[in-house]
Design a protein around this nucleic acid. Structure first.
Length: 474
RNA sequence: GGUCCCAUCGUCUAAUGGUUAGGACAUCACCCUUUCACGGUGGUAAUAUGGGUUCGAAUCCCGUUGGGAUCACCA
């Protein structure tokens, strides 16, 4: 039997990291077995629908390379793949379930049901409508009376099932709620739609957050009532913001889009989240999506929650950036060079930046001095290790100006040789020339490159202009 | 509160009865060096807790503590 998994997000306009990780595991389980990965949109809650949200889902999956084999946009043999378009299917199966004794019609209003419940005393809603004879209930439905369809939990004792991650789970049937399966607006709840769709779409492995562990017995009951075989279950632990809180939209925690906007590479994000709750059993940790397809196994999935650590993701992103070819890095960095002065050597700038940024977003702060020389303090010229200060800068700066003005070959090596020779001629340490030159060129304590690299980046004209400014300042 | 789940360095994790409890990030120190990075070397740092079982427990069992989930006409 072909392995089939599905990613079934609801279109709320936000691709959260935990969801993306679930999608990744679903994708990997299918692809590791040569199976199919299906995309299904769960939009049964009309109140929560967000315009454009499905595009975010499509774009995210495409960006990371998780291509689906069936879905709303490309179709497939088990469509439609949008739940709101499957409304008649759920109604049909819900009424069928009533006939099979797995559910009943309920005419209570929402408030009536709420009143009967008492959470403190742990009293569950006992639906009086369950006692209405089926024939009578059907007449009331036919007469147009508003109704919902509720599940029947008639079994006693313990429900047992096996989870691929958590092992054997046992839950008492008394704990289960006789929840609504078909709402009064005719839409199914998740509790019903997921079972019907997963069965009809022949999903073999249901992968979802572990908050569903305790309601899974209810779904199994539905499978049983229909005489269907239930799928393999793979419940995964949540991705946390800290020890107490899940990553959530409400807290403004980073979504996939946010991370990309900050200059994280999709490949790095995927690599990092794959390792949040899963490990390959070796000490390697850099994996492409294709690598993961080859080595992923559910056995190595973890049971405990994992805290999302942006610091480690940042490190990993740095690894991916450094692994880029110089050309590719330059291409990715270029958008951040908008509005740079004309004389700036952008390729030299990219070479300097490449090993120095861990996210593309860091380019802005690293290059701010290029657009405009900061109004720096003379204290910057003081460096103990280099044995320099403003006085020494004042002494060497005219000579630096002279050398640079006469310099023909504006390459890094040539500039370095010239300045080194100058230091020797003046009888000072190399650093006593190079350090003041770097401060004069940048006005910053730390820069992406040394004095000569900055000179190359800025170009001769701008470099000399800055040396002059330093002369005036000193 | 009932039920279910979870528990190894600060963080992600390895070790499926026998290891000086391993790796990675972070952190610290040193080296390299034209500032800062990159790179290299080394260090600090963990089995929540109490009982059992066993020659031997991070690992198996029970309790405790701590945390999370669930108990919607949300998914």
């Amino acid at each position: 039997m072909k392995v089939r998994t599905r990613f079934a997000p609801s279109p709320t306009g936000y691709m959260h990291i935990g969801n993306l990780r679930t999608a990744l595991y679903e994708y990997l389980i299918a692809k590791a077995a040569g199976g199919d990965f299906i995309l299904r949109i769960e939009d049964t809650d009309q109140k929560r629908y967000v315009e454009g949200a499905t595009e975010i889902i499509y774009n995210t999956l495409k960006t990371v390379g998780m291509n689906w084999d069936e879905g709303p946009d490309i179709g497939g043999n088990f469509g439609p793949y949008v739940q709101s378009e499957r409304k008649p299917i759920y109604a049909e199966y819900a009424h069928k379930l009533v006939e099979l004794g797995g559910a009943h019609y309920c005419f209570c209003s929402k408030s009536e049901a709420d009143e009967e419940k008492n959470e403190e005393l742990n009293i569950k809603f006992k639906d009086p409508c369950k006692l209405i004879p089926l024939e009578e209930a059907k007449k009331r439905v036919a007469a147009g009376e508003p109704y919902v369809i509720r599940q029947n939990i008639n079994k006693k004792g313990k429900s047992k099932y096996h989870d691929e991650v958590y092992g054997d789970i046992e839950i008492d049937y008394d704990e289960l709620d006789e929840g609504v399966l078909l709402k009064s607006d005719g839409f199914p709840t998740y509790n019903f739609a997921n079972v019907v769709d997963d069965h009809l779409m022949e999903i073999t492995h249901v992968v979802r957050g572990n908050e569903y562990i305790s309601s899974t017995p209810k779904y199994n009951l539905i499978y049983e009532d229909f005489g269907w075989e239930h799928p393999h279950y793979v419940h995964v632990p949540p991705v946390m913001k800290d020890a107490q809180h899940k990553l959530s939209k409400r807290n403004g925690d980073a979504s996939f889009q946010d991370l990309v906007a900050k200059g994280y590479l999709p490949e790095a994000i995927i690599n990092y989240i794959a390792l949040l709750g899963w490990n390959p059993g070796t000490e390697e940790e850099i994996f492409s999506l294709d690598d993961l397809k080859k080595i992923f196994t559910v056995e190595r999935l973890n049971r405990s929650p994992a805290i999302f650590d942006i610091t480690k993701l940042t490190w990993m992103n740095g690894c991916y950036i450094r692994a880029l070819s110089p050309e590719k890095f330059h291409k990715l960095a270029s958008p951040y060079y908008q509005g740079m002065p004309l004389g700036v050597d952008q390729e030299a700038l990219s070479r300097a930046l490449h090993p120095r940024v861990e996210t593309l977003g860091q380019i802005a702060e690293q290059t701010d001095f290029i657009r405009q020389l900061p109004d720096y303090s003379l204290d910057l010229y003081t460096n103990k290790k280099m044995k320099t200060d403003a006085n020494i800068a004042k002494e060497v700066m005219p000579a630096i100006k002279e050398i640079l003005s006469a310099q023909q070959d504006w390459s890094n090596d040539a500039l370095f040789e010239s300045l080194k020779a100058l230091a020797e001629k003046l009888g000072v340490k190399n650093g006593q020339v190079l350090y003041p030159a770097r401060i004069a060129l940048s006005g910053k304590e730390t820069t992406p490159g040394g004095a000569t690299e900055l000179a190359v980046i800025l170009g001769k004209e701008e470099s000399l202009r800055r040396i002059d400014a330093a002369l005036a300042k000193l």
